[in-house]
Design a protein around this nucleic acid. Structure first.
Length: 633
DNA sequence: ATTTCCTATT
């Protein structure tokens, strides 16, 4: 750009005057502060404890501060006052990895006969204990608080940090006891408007995934802040309770509760996972209309939402508009492209990322390897794996091995996949064996399939996945005796197959269907549509591929079973609920089966609809009889 | 003069 030159010229001009800061309030940068500091040393004002404390505070806590400088200032104080101790302790407790230093200075403070820790000291000291995960240190500090004799243990800030310390360390019994002693006096609930204390305890239950206790407290708490709502949403979302997260979010809107930036960032992953595009769009519009800052963090969450909800183009558009992109933003778009099977674009973005100076993380490589695996780019996958290990020096995680096993297995390089599993340094998990097993089924390699299944059963004896995959493999070979044996074994061990489940969002409502589902209010119309679809498919010359049906029953029954796979029901519902040519978007919990894949291709042509299906591992864009995955999946 | 809770990517 032409204008860049003139701008940088202006920026590079040296400052015309060196104005010495004479008041700390006018200091903007650490340089200003150093000048001011020098001045106070020269004129002796540094001896004034208040001036010294202010200098310390600026260097330790202001946004442009510098902890090293603060430490030097602190070390030069002959008699640091309580305020100075508190300031430096707080700065260290909030530091990235020097929190232990906060405890060391606190210890120093205890030995200093001229100062006593006060109610401003302990929140930071406790925060430092949490940071270093020091429950023993925390208990000691708790004792010191109780013993100090000035009733610090009835200060809101001290108590909520104590409860937080126990809660974050997972000692919920102690956290609860403290909370009850403080909040409930004489068996009566005392409401002091102390929402934070409630939030902290709820957060503790959420952390150990005790959602019943968390929800109970949330429901009865006398007052809720936006943080209470956000905590529940984030907790549900991070633990896989996506519907619950969205329900709470909806309830917030219904009650006209104030939403903020954190609310949106917390609910978006849940929206992404469910593929609720309409709701996701609403969040985007809400942020724009309410001046919620669309920065790299919220931007990354939105990019992930658009790509997981099928709108990879919208994700790309948004990506271009973000002025600042961090490594997560790049990972989101590269992972999105990979999911949509756009391997070349994913690799191009990966190189732009490096070019723009953002260092790839291990997650970036997961995205890149996923892209290779979905497109069958075996050599490229090998190349990037080697690059990651040998050049970038990242230690491969089990997920990276998973991608490589997947890459080899799908490409039919089963021996190489198995070799890698046997020589990888970490113990292969069930995901890895499952990747190999399902490839063995596709490529009809029964001996290796049985070997993989054996490992799988050992690793996850009560997971239905391996039995289903095994029985699938036998079924596709027509070995019904072995299918029956496998099924019997499942029955004996009381292992239930995870039911196939698909959902489709219509007018902002998520409609969920399981196999052979007829519980929907419009079930009758849906069934009529399913019949019509089957007829039209047959007229188009389609022959159902019944090897995907596990039962040894009549061909006719098998066909009927196929027709009632959850994704077909969802599509039928989509067809009757939307106008002609409207694009349909389906999300499925498992991988789409071969028969559904083949028939949805035709359905997209017969009904002239774009149909986007997100299955467990990737996106399929069906249009005019073809699928974007080019049948490689 | 100071202090607490909730934040994205596979």
């Amino acid at each position: 750009m032409l204008s860049t030159n003139s701008t940088s010229f202006l920026l590079n001009k040296p400052p015309t005057s060196l104005c010495i800061q004479s008041d700390i309030k006018t200091c903007k940068t650490i340089k200003d502060l150093v000048q001011f500091h020098a001045l106070t040393i020269k004129n002796g004002r540094i001896q004034d404890p208040i001036v010294a404390a202010e200098i310390l505070r600026f260097s330790a806590l202001s946004a442009r501060g510098n902890l090293e400088y603060a430490r030097l200032v602190f070390n030069q104080m002959k008699m640091p006052n309580c305020f100075s101790y508190n300031t430096i302790i707080r700065a260290y407790s909030e530091s990235k990895n020097e929190s232990l230093e906060a405890l060391i200075i606190y210890d120093q403070m205890l030995y200093d006969e001229f100062v006593e820790p006060n109610r401003f000291t302990y929140p930071s000291v406790l925060k430092a204990c949490v940071k270093i995960k020091g429950i023993e240190e925390g208990k000691q500090v708790h004792g010191q608080i109780v013993k100090c004799g000035v009733e610090l243990d009835s200060d809101d800030f001290v108590v909520s940090n104590l409860v937080r310390m126990y809660a974050v360390c997972g000692v919920m019994d102690d956290a609860r006891r403290l909370f009850e002693n403080y909040v409930v006096g004489d068996g009566e609930l005392v409401s002091e408007g102390n929402v934070v204390l409630w939030n902290v305890l709820i957060d503790g239950y959420v952390r150990i995934a005790e959602f019943e206790s968390a929800r109970k407290l949330f429901d009865i708490m006398p007052q809720r802040s936006v943080v209470s709502w956000n905590g529940m949403i984030a907790g549900y979302a991070q633990n896989g309770f996506f519907k619950e997260a969205i329900e709470i979010f909806r309830e917030m809107q219904m009650r006209n509760e104030c939403l903020n930036y954190v609310t949106l960032v917390s609910v978006l992953p849940a929206i992404s996972r469910l593929g609720a595009l309409e709701l996701g769009k609403w969040v985007h519009v809400y942020a724009e209309r309410n001046d919620i800052k669309l920065d790299d963090v919220l931007g990354s969450a939105l990019i992930d939402m658009y790509s997981k909800c099928g709108s990879i183009e919208k994700a790309l558009q948004l990506f271009e508009t973000l002025p600042y992109k961090n490594v997560v933003t790049w990972n989101a778009i590269i992972g999105g492209l990979a999911m949509h099977g756009r391997a070349k674009d994913a690799l191009d973005f990966f190189s732009s990322m490096k070019q723009s100076g953002v260092k790839p993380s291990d997650v970036s490589y997961i995205a890149v390897l996923t892209a290779c695996s979905h497109a069958g780019l075996v050599d490229e996958g090998r190349y990037y794996f080697e690059q990651m290990v040998r050049i970038v020096g990242l230690k491969p995680r089990i997920e990276h091995y998973g991608c490589m096993v997947d890459l080899f297995s799908r490409a039919g390089l089963l021996e190489e996949a198995e070799k890698l599993i046997l020589r990888m340094p970490t113990k292969p998990d069930d995901v890895i064996w499952k990747a190999l097993l399902s490839a063995c089924r596709v490529h009809g390699h029964i001996e290796m399939g049985q070997r993989a299944a054996k490992h799988l059963i050992k690793l996850a004896p009560h997971d239905s996945g391996c039995y289903v995959a095994l029985s699938n493999m036998y079924a596709s070979l027509g070995n019904w005796v072995s299918v029956a044996e496998t099924r019997l074994k499942m029955k004996e061990l009381n292992i239930k197959k995870v039911p196939g489940c698909s959902w489709i969002e219509i007018d902002g409502t998520i409609n969920e269907f399981v196999v052979e589902d007829d519980s929907h209010p419009r079930a009758h119309e849906i069934n009529l549509m399913l019949e019509e679809m089957a007829n039209k498919l047959r007229m188009a010359g389609y022959k159902p591929d019944t090897t995907h049906v596990l039962l040894n029953v009549d061909e006719e029954d098998k066909e009927s079973a196929l027709n009632h796979h959850s994704e077909k029901i969802a599509i039928a519902f989509g067809l009757i609920s939307t106008g002609p040519k409207t694009q349909l978007q389906i999300v499925k919990n498992l991988r789409i089966c071969g028969d559904c894949h083949a028939s949805v291709k035709l359905i997209s042509k017969i009904y002239d609809r774009r149909i986007i299906v997100r299955d467990r591992s990737r996106f399929h864009h069906f249009e005019n009889g073809f699928c974007s995955c080019m049948d490689y999946w």
